[in-house]
Amino acid sequence: MLIPLVLVGAALFSLGLIGFVTRRNLIIIFLCTELMFQGIVLNLAAFGRYPLSGPPSLDGQAFAIFLLAIAAAEAALGLALVVLLYRYRGTLDANAYKVLKDS
C-alpha cells in the first residue's frame, strides 16, 4: 500500500512544483505551494501508516498536523502580501515584480 500512496504524493508534489514554476498568477503560485503541501501530507501519513521498518506509528499524522498549521500560517501571510502587492501594482502578474533585479 505504501508505494502507490507515496507515488501519488510524489506526483502531487511534482505537479505543484511545475505549477509554481510555470504559472504567472501570484495566487495560483501560492495555490501550487499548497498543492505541494498536499503531496507531503499524503506522504507523511503513508509513511506513518506503513513504515519501512517497525510497527505503524502516529508520528506521521502528528507531523502532518503541524504541516497544516504551517500551511495555514503561510497562506495567511502569503495572501496578505498578495493583497498588498495587488494594491501596490494593480496586477497579479509575477513578472511585474522584479524589484530584486539590479536596475
Binding site: L17, F20, V21, R24, I29, A94, N95, Y97, K98, V99, L100, K101, D102
Partner: peptide, 17 residues
C-alpha cells in the same frame, strides 16, 4: 550571468528546480 538575474523569483525557483 546577469541575464539570469532578472529579479523574478520564479526564474530563480525554476533554476532551483
Amino acid at each position: 550571468l546577469r541575464v539570469a538575474q532578472n529579479g523574478m523569483l520564479q526564474s530563480y525557483a525554476l533554476t532551483t528546480a
